[in-house]
Design a protein around this nucleic acid. Structure first.
Lengths: 151, 151
DNA sequence: CAAAAGTCTATTAGTATTATAGACTTTATA
DNA sequence: TATAAAGTCTATAATACTAATAGACTTTTG
């Protein structure tokens, strides 16, 4: 049930790009800055951001003063979307996947105990990941920060 | 978020071993029979069952008329236990794992957005998998079977 | 003792993940 | 208009993990 490094790095980068700066708006950041702050191998991050860009989640600008920024409001980008792009389907087994269904070969899918249970798992993962946006997370983080400060 | 083949095969085998026979009790089955009925490569299944046995979930008997059977009542063996034995921790990232915690390297774990969200995911997976026993599943399956028959 | 069954460890083949390399394109600005 | 800063793109290497296979060994029953 592991999230790959690709997925982890991508999520970290997206969270960073969704975290409002001093002007209160999501920043434009260079690969270099993200990779240094999050300790992600630069060339690897490059590929990841490119993938995310090609999927329509990021915009970028080339040249001096360029960089990456969110293509949509942080409230409209879910964890689920990011993970699916970078790591593929959320489902533990293909026969319960919504985006990449494949039969598992058991005689009767409707009465397969493994499938019934893994279906529940997939649904609960999807519920959280699809129900959590980048904005939800940055809000939650700043809330926790405040709570910790006042204690 | 994938379950490995090892984990899948192991769960299938355990469900089979938990499904009561005509005498109403969990059966003793040979590797051969399980591997044929579930179409699992025999030698691979052999390793898996051995692992499960060494973990205390199965008992076995060598020699003529031998085979494998559950070491405990089906109600006392959870999916979570089986998956952890065969596939390792349920947590998507190590920094939220209960059984195999490792720091992820972010400056402050308490306020890491990735960690907060993945913690939720790990908890909801664990809740389902640890809360579902082999007995729960075989019951559910036979219930679904009846429902389908009467329609 | 022979056949049926599990035990144990090693090894291979295949695939996926993670990371690196390098040549190329675009853009701002000195 | 040249240069440096930035992203783009594709290939490849290195590693690790997964899945599967192999084979020699042990135990048990009849």
């Amino acid at each position: 049930m592991r999230l790959s490094k690709r997925g982890e790095y991508g999520l970290r980068a997206m969270i960073m790009l969704a975290t409002p700066g001093q002007d209160g708006r999501p920043p434009v950041l260079q690969i270099r800055e993200i990779s240094e702050r999050e300790k992600i191998p630069g060339k690897f991050l490059e590929q990841i951001l490119l993938t995310l860009k090609n999927a329509g989640l990021l915009h970028s600008k080339m040249g001096v003063g360029g960089g990456y920024h969110l293509a949509k409001p942080a409230g409209e980008i879910s964890f689920g979307h990011i993970v699916r792009i970078l790591d593929g389907p959320l489902a533990p087994v293909k026969c319960v996947s919504q985006m990449a269904y494949e039969p598992c070969g058991c005689p009767d899918e409707e009465t397969c105990g493994l499938r019934l249970t893994m279906g529940d798992v997939r649904n609960s993962i999807a519920k959280i990941l699809d129900g959590t946006s980048l904005e939800d997370v940055t809000r939650r983080v700043s809330k926790v920060r405040k709570t910790l400060k006042s204690s």
